[in-house]
Every structure is written in structure tokens, then in C-alpha cells.
Design a protein around this nucleic acid. Structure first.
Length: 541
RNA sequence: GCGUCUGUAGCUCAGUUGGAUAGAGCGUUAGCUUCCGAAGCUAAAGGUCAGAAGUUCGAAUCUUCUCAGGCGCUCCA
């Protein structure tokens, strides 16, 4: 629709101002002002006013005079230079039919340039269960991957498992110390969650013996093959299993679980470090190997151990080689880490434009008015799984997706649980269920047999306008990866439906087929939107 | 101090890429069930869009500065 108007305007400008070349400045936008009875407008005359040094009113009127007569639109001027376009009711009503007859409402989101894309998200350390702090990234990342898939990209969803280095060491110590207290010596902060006891008590006698007999030598053998390594792998697998289960309960699945340890087994880390050294990007300082990024950053510590940065570079190096586009969903606390990754990848010869990092702001959690900082280490956290159980998948999805990722969100756990009954998601689902009830009650009638007439009372017009905007909004949400546009849209559509439902009889003594046809379209759009957001559409509630 | 995200109604958040009189939910107040599901509808009250300057015909939106808050500034991961 906007394109048609744009072409009309463009033609009119060529006629009224020959030789001008302003087509690229033409923008057609939706009318949001309530006192203007039109659907679209363009502000081109205001833009031209400056360039041509003519006042915008004159320009607008001249353009309007040159606009081709069209059956589908009415044009009119409003101050100081808007050209408004009102679409005829007949034209608008077509959307109802289009929606009802379409077998794919998202047709048109497909890209011309399908890429192989890796989306890495969550990637919480396997040292404890997922807590509510991880929920936002999990749900957001999953939807982003889904939207990219709908666009036609070949998407791999990946979880990077940090099963190497210090924190795994401490995890093992935490568990081992339950079996042999000597392990705890020298550590003042060990993992404390209930899962530590659980894992410790479920180890086999053989495993326990291994722990007790090895004492302090255990960690010297952990990376070479043998029973020590097997035990470590066993424990990591248990942890990953806990995480997988809670993601699965949220219907989030990954295509690939990439283990940090595999980078060392395949010498990927040493390879990239050698390359960086050969290309003179590194230098040695105080016995450590460093690279100059935003600041000098350590790759190999003076004790000879690799930093997290070293393996992460190796990891990204692989992703950059294997994919056309690499997307990371990170918590905002990692933003300071990005510059060094970029510098490292650039040094390795990669085009860093291929890397796209989405920083998701924190969801601050309060309980009884007090802020709770999630800390796995301190055993101070609220499991994502317990929140999910409490408020349900639909409410938790909607809650996270309705907010922009750049927005910090605060929520009080008590209020969240209490409010979950008031979650707007139920309002939308209720609209769906109400429509379903009507449609079921007239099952057996062939509604398609009836010729559709124009609907024209005010509430119907309002709904039809909203339905007309659905393609544009859904496409924008999917292409620009902004799920909250859909949540807002669905709410608005549901609101208009509920109001309509309360005021207008759809089934009276006889069936009003035009209205049935309308609500059927509404239901289809709601279903489409809820599906997109991984939210269910129950037929009754 | 530096980097980064944010500041919109009592609270939680939208605001269609610079447009016309800034919107919802919750909460508050007042109404609506002989009738398709009241998880609903109708209405009221509630705003210096943190503040200031600037750019523009036009700013919640862009620029600069100030103030306030979150997060990060480890040879942690």
C-alpha cells in the first residue's frame, strides 16, 4: 500500500516539478493523529519546501493537483503541508478475505539472501542450575533464532559449555569436599547449592574412592585421559543435563552444544595463538602473553594457563570460519569484553562485521522490596525452573518478550507471581478462546459460501485498520528482530475484539456471516502471533 | 574517573525508524451480567517525556552538557 502511494506521489512530483530528483526523500507513513480521518500521509512537501524555498502549503497543493485520480484512495491536504491518503472501505475490507484465505500469513518475510547463521545464547557456566537471571537471554535468543529461521536463514542454535578452567575446578572441589573434607582447604568460596550434595551423594563407591585416594593430585590428571577425566566429564554431563532439562521445559532446544574443552583437545587454542604470535600481534609482559586491545589483554597467564579470552578467541575463530553471520546474545555485564574479542578476531583476519552481539539488559529481581543479586557461587539464586513452574510458560514468555532488550526490567518476585494471573497474555488468549467458542457453535455451516459484504460500523472499521497493519508490524518485528512489536500488536487487536464482542452481536437469531468472517480473521492473526512468540492458543481456558 | 544501557502517569512498560492533541496494563474512583464465556466491557482521575541549551517548519525521538540509576572496567569466567 505504501509503495503504491509512493509511486503515485513520485509521479506527481515529476509532473509538478520537472527536473527535480526528490523521489528518494518520499516517505509514506501511517496516520496516528486521531483528528485526521486518513490512513497514510507523506511529509514530502515539508522536505521540499527547504530545498525549493517555496512554502510547503503551495507545494502540497500543487502535488495533490497532479496526483492521478485513483479509485482506491481519497487525497486531501492538511496544514502545514501534509498530503493525506484515505483508503476506501472496499479496499480495506479485502484484508479480511486475504487473511482468511492465506495459507501463510508470514509470506513475504523471506530474505533474498539466505545466510548460514550461528546464534549462541544462554551459555551459562555448567556450575549450577539456570536462575531467573538467565531467563531473559534464553527466551530472547530462542525467539531471535526463530525469527531468523522464518526469514529463511539457515540457523544453528548453539550453547557454549564452559567446561574448562577455574570455575569447573571449583565446582569439582565443591563436590569432592562433601566426600573428603581435605579438598576444601584453602577455598573460602565453594558452590553451595543443594545440587552439590545431590551429585556428591549419588557418586558410585568407585568414584568416591578415586576422589579420596587421589587427594591433591587429582587435578594434575584431569585433562589427560583416565578415570579422573572421566569423573570430571561425568559431573559436567550431570550439570549440563540439569540445564538442558530446564531449557526443554521452556521449549528451548539447541542444535549444538559446543564444549570449551574440545578446543584444547583439538589444539585450536594453541593454533590461533601461534598465528597471532607469527603475525606479531602479541607481546610478552611480566611473563604473560598479551595482545593490545582496548587495553593490554592477557592470553596466556604468567603461570602458563590460558585465559578464558584465549579459548573464546579460538571458539569464535571457528564460528567465523563456519558461518556467514555469528550472533551472540550476551548479558549486558559482558559488554566490556566485546572490544578485545573484536580486536582478536580482526587480528586473525576476520571481517568483524560478521559478528553481531546483542546485549540483553539485566532483569533485576526484588523480593519484598529488596534487590536480590543472583550468585550461583554463593548459592543465592532463584531457579528459572521454579519461576516457570510458578507462573507458567506462556506468562514467562510474554513477560520477557514484551520488553525491549535494551530496557532494564525490575520485577518483584512476589508481585510477578501474584500478577501472573493478570498477565496480558491471558487477555489475548481469552480473545482467541472466545472466538473459538463462536466458531465451534456454528460448525457445520459453510461460511465461505456467503458473499462477503463491506463492514462499516466504527468498531469494525477500527479492527479492519488494525488487521491491515498486521503485515507491516509482523514483518518489521521479524526482520528487525523486535518481538515486543508483536506482543503490543496482539494486545491492541485483542482489546478491539473484546470491545467489539461486548457491543455487537455476532450470532443473533441468525448467523451474521460478515462478522463471523471478521472474527475468524482476527483469530487467525492472534494464533499466528502467539505461535511466533512460542505461546499457546488454548481453545478454552 | 572511563565505557555502556537507561530515565515517559503512583508502579511496570509501549511509543511504527523526526510528524499532527504522548499511550497501555496494574493500582485508585464510578458504572455495566434476563443476551455468543465478566479472565470481559464503559468511563473518570493521573504527565514540566529527568533538567538545560542546540539542530529543524516540527523533538519523548537527533547533538552537546548537567543530574540520577543499572552494568562493566581481574594474569575471573
Amino acid at each position: 500500500m505504501k509503495d503504491i502511494i509512493k509511486q503515485l506521489v513520485s509521479k506527481a512530483i515529476r509532473e509538478s516539478y520537472p527536473g527535480s530528483n526528490f523521489e528518494e526523500f518520499i516517505e509514506v507513513q501511517n496516520v496516528t493523529a486521531k483528528n485526521i480521518d486518513a490512513d497514510y500521509f507523506t511529509n514530502i512537501s515539508m522536505k521540499l519546501a527547504k530545498k525549493l524555498k517555496i512554502n510547503p502549503t503551495t507545494i502540497a497543493e500543487k502535488i495533490i493537483a497532479s496526483l492521478d485520480k485513483q479509485e482506491d484512495f481519497i487525497y486531501f491536504f492538511s496544514k502545514p503541508g501534509y498530503i493525506n491518503f484515505k483508503v476506501t472501505d472496499i479496499m480495506k475490507n479485502n484484508i479480511i478475505q486475504k487473511i482468511n484465505e492465506s495459507d501463510n500469513l508470514l509470506y513475504g518475510c523471506k530474505t533474498d539472501n539466505p545466510k548460514k547463521i550461528n546464534v549462541e545464547f544462554v551459555s551459562a557456566n555448567p556450575t549450577g542450575p539456570l536462575h531467573v537471571g538467565h531467563g531473559r537471554g534464553a527466551i530472547y535468543g530462542n525467539i531471535i533464532a526463530k525469527f531468523l529461521t522464518i526469514q529463511g536463514h539457515n540457523v544453528t542454535k548453539e550453547y557454549y559449555v564452559n567446561d574448562f578452567g577455574n570455575q569447573i575446578h571449583i565446582l569439582l572441589i565443591s563436590i569432592f569436599s562433601k566426600i573428603d573434607n581435605e579438598y576444601a582447604a584453602g577455598y573460602n568460596e565453594l558452590y553451595q547449592g543443594e545440587y552439590i550434595n545431590h551429585i556428591a551423594s549419588n557418586l558410585t563407591e568407585e568414584q568416591k574412592k578415586l576422589i579420596i585416594n587421589n587427594s591433591k593430585d587429582f587435578f594434575k590428571k584431569i585433562d589427560s585421559s583416565g578415570p579422573e577425566k572421566n569423573l570430571k566429564t561425568h559431573i559436567v554431563n550431570l550439570m549440563v543435563g540439569i540445564i538442558q532439562q530446564s531449557l526443554m521445559n521452556l521449549n528451548i532446544d539447541f542444535d549444538n552444544w559446543f564444549y570449551e574443552s574440545s578446543l584444547f583437545e583439538n589444539n585450536n587454542v594453541s593454533k590461533i595463538i601461534n598465528k597471532l604470535e607469527q603475525d606479531n600481534y602479541t607481546f610478552t609482559k611480566d611473563g604473560a602473553l598479551m595482545i593490545q586491545a582496548d587495553e593490554p589483554r592477557v592470553i596466556i597467564k604468567s603461570d602458563g594457563n590460558y585465559t578464558y579470552f584465549a579459548s573464546d578467541l579460538a571458539y569464535h575463530n571457528i564460528k567465523m570460519n563456519d558461518y556467514d553471520s555469528v550472533i551472540n546474545i550476551w548479558g549486558a555485564d559482558h559488554h566490556g569484553y566485546l572490544p578485545r574479542v573484536k580486536v582478536g578476531l580482526k587480528a586473525l583476519g576476520h571481517d568483524i562485521d560478521k559478528l553481531d552481539v546483542h546485549l540483553v539488559q539485566f532483569a533485576n529481581l526484588f523480593k519484598n522490596g529488596e534487590k536480590i543479586s543472583m550468585s550461583t557461587r554463593k548459592g543465592q539464586y532463584i531457579e528459572l525452573e521454579s519461576l516457570r513452574k510458578e507462573i507458567g510458560n506462556d506468562a514467562i514468555n510474554f513477560f520477557y518478550l514484551t520488553k525491549n532488550k535494551d530496557q532494564h526490567i525490575d520485577f518483584d518476585l512476589n508481585i510477578a507471581i501474584q500478577d501472573s494471573k493478570n498477565n496480558p497474555v491471558y487477555y489475548i488468549q481469552y480473545a482467541f478462546a472466545r472466538i473459538e467458542k463462536i466458531l465451534i457453535s456454528i460448525e457445520g455451516y459453510d461460511i465461505n459460501k456467503h458473499k462477503f459484504k463491506t463492514l462499516d460500523n466504527d468498531s469494525e472499521k477500527e479492527i479492519i485498520d488494525t488487521l491491515n497493519s498486521f503485515t507491516e508490524i509482523f514483518h518489521k518485528a521479524i526482520i528487525q528482530l523486535e518481538p515486543h512489536l508483536i506482543t503490543n500488536y496482539l494486545y491492541k487487536l485483542s482489546q478491539e475484539f473484546h470491545s467489539y464482542y461486548a457491543n455487537v452481536k455476532i450470532l443473533d437469531n441468525k448467523i451474521n456471516y460478515d462478522r463471523v468472517y471478521l472474527i475468524k480473521a482476527i483469530q487467525k492473526v492472534i494464533k499466528c502471533g502467539l505461535d511466533l512468540l512460542n505461546i499457546s492458543s488454548p481453545k478454552e481456558m
